[in-house]
């Protein structure tokens, strides 16, 4: 693997990759790592509300990042929120990737009018900002994690489709492709064995950057109150929750979830940029 050894020699990619790994582990093992369970009604007490960072809660636990208005430990809430944010981003990316792959490969393989129509749809969708399309979709679909995932998948599929098609078209124009089609292999086999592999590298980069993007969009939607429900807050909902306390000076309720969001998105973005430079050095600089 050229890519793996290249990652090792680039400190930026190494550091950002490590950060992503830590964040992912923290999210997966949140119930084990978090000092408290912020959503266990029995243990959360309103009396712990708005403790400053480092304050001690009633049961003796130190709230390193403070507590929110309802007395939940902010650190624990962040770890749980991270789970929701990553779940939404990754599952929507997976769905969008699948749809994009099918549409992109179909367009590239069959070409002609089908290709024109599919790509026109892609163009029109991409001419609208993702956040807006997601907003409108959620306005029509209603609230819920599943709805957010669907909305984000619909927002993203077009970009994957365009990328896959572009990569597959490059392969299609090569001379051997004509020979392959003459062999009377099944269409699916040609698509999978010959068109797909060529688009994998650009897809990896795109999927990385898109995951960062959809984490941001989900956070924004949840902040606006049209994203995930209060019962399963993401980082965005936590920030929205802290919005009410800003003017009273309880900055930590919004600051720390936001900082976590920033760290996550920045780490993935930087890692994605590095991946792109490794995979396609021509694009670097």
């Amino acid at each position: 693997m050229i890519a793996l050894s290249a990652i090792r020699t680039r400190p930026t990619s190494y550091v950002s990759g490590l950060l992503i790994a830590i964040i992912a582990i923290a999210a997966v093992f949140a119930p084990l790592i978090a000092p408290t369970d912020p959503y266990a009604l029995a243990t959360v007490s309103i009396l712990d509300g708005r403790l400053a960072p480092g304050g001690e809660m009633l049961d003796g636990t130190i709230a390193w990042l403070g507590t929110d208005g309802a007395g939940r430990d902010v650190l624990s809430a962040i770890l749980y929120g991270l789970r929701t944010s990553l779940t939404v981003a990754i599952s929507s990316a997976a769905i969008a990737l699948t749809i994009g792959l099918i549409v992109g490969l179909t367009a590239a393989f069959y070409g002609g009018r089908l290709d024109t129509i599919l790509m026109r749809v892609v163009d029109i969708q991409l001419s609208f900002p993702a956040i807006l399309v997601a907003l409108v979709l959620l306005a029509l679909l209603g609230k819920g994690i599943d709805k957010v995932i669907i909305a984000l998948a619909i927002v993203q599929w077009a970009l994957y489709a365009r990328t896959v098609r572009a990569a597959a078209m490059v392969e299609r124009r090569k001379e051997y492709f004509e020979a392959v089609t003459c062999l009377e292999l099944s269409n699916t086999r040609i698509i999978w064995r010959h068109l797909l592999p060529n688009s994998v590298s650009s897809l990896i980069v795109l999927a990385t950057l898109q995951t960062a993007h959809s984490i941001s969009i989900e956070a924004t939607l949840s902040f606006l109150g049209v994203g995930v429900p209060i019962t399963e807050p993401s980082l965005g909902s936590l920030i929205a929750n802290g919005f009410d306390y800003i003017l009273s000076g309880a900055y930590w309720i919004t600051f720390f979830p936001g900082a976590m969001l920033l760290a996550t998105v920045a780490a993935i973005n930087i890692f994605g940029d590095q991946l792109r430079e490794i995979i396609n050095p021509r694009l670097a600089k």
Binding site: S216, T220, L261, L262, A266
Partner: peptide, 8 residues
């Protein structure tokens, strides 16, 4: 590009 605008 990475910073969440609403948080900022």
């Amino acid at each position: 590009i990475s910073i969440p605008t609403f948080w900022l």
